[in-house]
Design a protein around this nucleic acid. Structure first.
Lengths: 242, 242
DNA sequence: GTCGAGAGCCTTGTATACAAGATTAGCTAT
DNA sequence: ATAGCTAATCTTGTATACAAGGCTCTCGAC
């Protein structure tokens, strides 16, 4: 009943939203029963998840949802930060006027973010709009390709954001920064872009904050190195349909 | 006899070096016979190739070595250019002295490049050293992670470089720019970095040059859209062992 | 001659049996 | 009681039979 693509997206979402916690076992046989699918297509799905860093395959032992790799988080933040600075400065220093439709869309997204906060629509809704905002910026500069590329490599960063948001509710600050970015663009002000982007994407992350509260999500002890991986079974918590 | 990992690397190399030309059919059954391997592990290999853009899978029809996507080339060049500018400027404006070992390694690589050109060791050797140089720059800034990330997405760019090199032999110019980059670093001169990197990575590519001579490698007509894909069989040209 | 239906052959997609490595539990010898 | 070996039972890895969809070539109707 569940198609391969559906299952892939579903697992991705559950891992990204931390519904499936790092360290959870994803056994081929168990899943093939649960999703009424033979092991072959299921292995395709797991292969892809492994390739994109969602899970870690321990040969002949099992597949575990990967731990959040803080090194990867830091690198991706730097990547995004560098790119967005350059993109914004390029946009702000264009001689041609900025596309009206694009800027309008950006303003609308910021409006929706305010709406989302006011309605208390939850973190996932806010994050979705936040992604939409930044993707629209990339689009404005003709760089959606690179946005998508980063998205393929952001498993760890995406989960980091969830944990980070859980700690500090700075949603209004984020919205304010979005608005400021748009103002800078329209005023053709390139002077403050570096500073704003750096702060907005929080290059100055401090892993220590997370280590205290979410240690079990981070840097899982490696399997096969005289250290117990802390395996916990998946059970039925993610709502199979069998 | 051939292991899965070996086959994967081999196919990657043959595709990157254009030994396997865009449009070449990689049939599962044919390859399984040729490499004495059952279809299951072979499909794993093809899956990964597809995921990284080396081949294009037409469901129920076949797997073709992908055409060189010039859009992807342009985007990756921009990505590399932006990152390398930032990395170099960061390195050049550090208060701490640059690591002696790292700078020595970079000088050595440039020396090897001269040696390679003098010995006429061929394009592949030169490209290998060129990659080594730029990777070493990323390493100096603690950004090897991002270098590797880009490498995973550079199928089209890597092949573009081969075609480009075939046209213009500017090897000495490239070496000179490498040397200039190192000089700028040691002199802490951030002023010329933007210009040098932009020119070095040739952001100003002109696809037209390639379209004339290598049209058959680019933008293959899409299969299944009333257009013949121009399929040519793989035959035995890549040296099977069966 | 031209168009269309259909069979055969091609491809990839799926299911499942079997192989092989890894861990663990238990039994035996000391 | 404990150390060590063995066997059972997990896991993923592989081989292969079968299913299903797409293309082409042929044959037939018009």
């Amino acid at each position: 009943m569940t198609s391969k693509a559906d299952l892939l997206n579903r697992l991705k979402e559950e891992i990204l939203t931390l519904t499936l916690k790092p360290g959870t076992i994803l056994s081929e046989t168990a899943m093939s029963e649960r999703f009424r699918m033979s092991r072959t297509p299921l292995r395709d799905v797991l292969k892809q998840l492994a390739h994109e860093g969602y899970i870690h395959v321990y040969p002949k032992r099992g597949n575990l949802v990967s731990a959040i790799d803080l090194e990867s988080v830091e690198q991706i933040i730097y990547l995004r930060s560098t790119l967005e600075k350059d993109i914004l400065k390029e946009l702000a220093s264009r001689s041609a006027p900025l596309p009206i439709r694009g800027m309008l869309e950006l303003r609308q997204i910021v409006g929706q973010q305010e709406e989302s906060v006011r309605r208390e629509a939850g973190h996932e809704d806010f994050l979705r709009l936040d992604d939409a905002f930044h993707k629209a910026l990339f689009a404005l500069a003709g760089r959606v390709f690179l946005w998508d590329l980063i998205q393929q490599s952001n498993v760890h960063y995406a989960r980091y954001r969830r944990l980070h948001l859980l700690q500090k509710e700075k949603l209004e600050e984020i919205i304010g920064e979005h608005r400021l970015i748009l103002d800078l663009l329209e005023n053709r002000d390139t002077g403050q872009i570096d500073e704003i982007v750096r702060h907005h994407l929080r290059e100055d992350i401090h892993a220590a904050d997370l280590r205290g509260n979410f240690a079990e999500y981070l840097n899982l002890p490696r399997l096969g190195e005289s250290e117990d991986p802390g395996i916990r079974t998946d059970a039925e918590e993610s709502g199979g349909q069998g």
